[in-house]
């Protein structure tokens, strides 16, 4: 087994995983399993280790692959487990209770109140971070 193809496979996996996650962010199955890219980084580390331990030929590509995938594994794990965590905070909303009313300006500046929809339509309220 030659070391260079294994090292290239490791690099491709390590760099390709976050790129694929970014491209497929609109697919809920992909978006909602960010752990998958961390797994891909771990697999890329394993490939680089195999290349170094058993591979024949040039070794520097395998060292580069190990460096890149190792760095991505640490950064990706941190982001997924710490950086992207949203602390659980007590919410004022309870299933079965009426949501508190509010009035906010819409995109044209007109004030819209939640009570306007009462007795008319179900409402899906989506709170989002904005710049995301």
């Amino acid at each position: 087994m030659r070391a260079t193809p294994l090292a290239l496979a490791s690099l491709l996996l390590a760099v390709g995983a976050p790129v694929a996650y970014g491209l497929l962010i609109r697919v809920p199955l992909v978006r909602n399993h960010p752990g998958a890219y961390v797994m891909a980084f771990a697999l890329a580390v394993a490939l680089a280790v195999v290349a170094l331990a058993h591979g024949r030929g040039r070794r520097w590509p395998a060292w580069i692959a190990l460096g890149v995938s190792g760095l991505l594994l640490v950064a990706g794990s941190w982001f997924n487990l710490v950086g992207a965590r949203v602390p659980a905070t007590p919410t004022a909303l309870r299933i079965g209770e009426r949501a508190p009313d509010f009035t906010l300006p819409d995109a044209t500046g007109r004030p819209v109140s939640l009570a306007e929809f009462r007795g008319k339509k179900p409402v899906v309220l989506v709170f989002y971070r904005g710049y995301w």
């Binding site: 949203v86 009426r98 009462r118 007795g119 309220l125 989506v126 709170f127 971070r129 995301w132």
Partner: peptide, 27 residues
């Protein structure tokens, strides 16, 4: 920033379903 959340209210404005994310990547 807002905590990402999706809340379904029925016609009376009563909360029937909600999803609060613990990881902002997950919706």
């Amino acid at each position: 920033v807002p905590r990402p959340a999706t809340v379904v209210l029925d016609r009376d404005g009563v909360v029937r379903w909600m999803s609060l994310s613990n990881n902002f990547q997950v919706r």
